[in-house]
Amino acid sequence: MSIAETMIPPQAPPPAPPKPYTFSRFFGSVALGIWLALGVGIFLTVVNGWDPEKFSRYGPSFLSGLGVTLTLVISSILMGAVLSLPVALGRMSKNRLWGWLAYAYVYFFRGTPLITQLFLIYYGLGSFRPQLETVGLWWFFRDAWNCALFTFTLNTAAYQAEILRGAIESVPRGQREGAAALGLPERVAFFKVILPQAMIVALRPYGNEIILMIKGSAIVAIVTVFDLMGETRRAFSRTFDYQMYIWAAILYLLMVELLRNIWGWLEARLTRHLKR
């Protein structure tokens, strides 16, 4: 029997076997190559077609269009949030009539395209001009911007009501019962116990809703509101320069990605007590 007298000196691990050239690697390179080529192509067309005169003429109008889009989205989201409260309460109420009315409202605004609703209000209410004039509301519905704001508010209120209802109903019943056992009044229980937990559930859907509104707001360009899309269409119809659409696409992507990242950060921050 022999005993090892010396330790085997430490050795470097054998080199990793070369990665096999798989199909997926091939497809990945091809796909990335396509994206790269597209990116370079877009960059080159922008550089080749760069025209300082166009930039100075249409740059400011793009910025003002961006402002119009943001104003429209922010104000309709805020007003929709206010309007969604009674709708959500109606959806959850035990009263048959209120429940049915709220359900019909939500079903209509979620089941039809936003553009159809916009046309219904902008063009459709025009046929009630005499009646609206007697009520004194014609000045409001005459303006495309007001109609867009009105439609968007109604639309987002329906979606937000569903988000709110789902979030409130997702809070376990034990929380309500616990609050009742502690002797908290119902109002305090709702605002201090139920709502904070519901809002955490609702955070992500709310973010998605804002993104949907930013994207959906592009259709107001069709009813002559000059938001970002409207300015783009105007610039394109004057110059026939395809770049205009590329600039609009970049601006929209920036908006959406920025919001998505802010929302991700917000969610991580607000749910840090739930991390294990």
């Binding site: 089941g111 159809t116 609703q117 046929s127």
Partner: peptide
Amino acid sequence: HAFEFFGIACVLFL
């Protein structure tokens, strides 16, 4: 008759 026709469009989508 804009309201009627766009209303019909909404109903068809529904």
